[in-house]
Design a protein around this nucleic acid. Structure first.
Lengths: 156, 156
DNA sequence: ATAATAATGGTCAATGAAGGTCAATCATGA
DNA sequence: TCATGATTGACCTTCATTGACCATTATTAT
């Protein structure tokens, strides 16, 4: 894309490096200075162009010697399948629904038995322990969505 | 390695020794001199990177011939070990605390790398997505407690 | 023995060095 | 015009570094 705005240019710059490097560690203010913009614009670029949906994993540390690390994730061949499952989840699910999803994932060898068991326990009513049922089901959905997203990509 | 700050470097140095030795006894001012920092920075490193949540036990003695001894705890009896961790959790924990626990469980081969990663994602702020910070930390603690309990009873 | 002194390590609050958030504003294309 | 995305900056949170002052233990002088 023809980068007319700085965000596109920074995006292109980072992706060019990531095309060869798979992982990059930057100093926020250095990059900002290099592209003559405010530091928070780097956060904007990362949030809009390097999120998990787009196959990137970002970690950072504050304080002296701080950094922002962007890692390119490798998409699995089950990406499509998982995307389909993700669409099925919705914003709330019950404990039984979660069970079915986990069974699916286990059957398709995307989760080991133990992983599925752990996830089941995480989604149990007594584990979440929230008073409101709506909130509980939303939370359970969040957990499942996060799981599915994490399975879409492999960290190297 | 990412350590561009002295604390990370000292941490790496000590852990490298502990990888072979299980216990190390240092002289605070010597180490400080060796890494060109003030003595109290050693305390900082120990407090933030060698605490009990991370599987270390620290003892020290003042006065002439004083020392700081760092011991890497090994899990002898599993039940006892998990019980100890459970006591450390408390009712609320931060994301970094969770990281420490998971790292330790992985180090002690109670979780696979993937299991630890999944759990880390479950405990992320953006996964839980609750407005109230207290509630978030309580919830995170609930997840970890449920995990620890499941490890305790389900010995497969 | 006791008292001073030297040799350690411990604590804590101030400061510095990153990165994070959010809401206001600006720009652009449909 | 209006909706969406980009830009900016004030303010916040987290982590690291430093140093003044404190507490404990060992050694030495009386």
């Amino acid at each position: 894309m023809t980068g007319q705005n700085i965000s596109d240019i920074i995006e292109a710059y980072l992706k060019q490096i990531l095309a060869e490097q798979q992982q990059i560690e930057i100093n926020r203010s250095d990059i900002a200075a290099q592209f003559n913009c405010v530091p928070s614009q780097i956060n904007y670029v990362i949030k809009t162009r390097f999120n998990e949906q787009q196959g990137y994993w970002v970690e950072s540390k504050r304080g002296g010697g701080g950094y922002i690390r962007i890692e390119k994730l490798q998409s699995t061949d089950l990406d499509e399948y998982l995307t389909r499952l993700l669409e099925l989840v919705g914003t709330q699910i019950t404990e039984q629904d979660l069970q079915m999803f986990l069974q699916q994932l286990y059957d398709n060898q995307l989760l080991t038995k133990r992983e599925a068991q752990i996830m089941a326990i995480m989604g149990e009513h007594k584990t979440l322990n929230v008073s409101n049922q709506e909130a509980e089901e939303t939370l359970r959905a969040n957990l499942l969505i996060a799981l599915l997203n994490s399975l879409r990509y492999k960290r190297s």
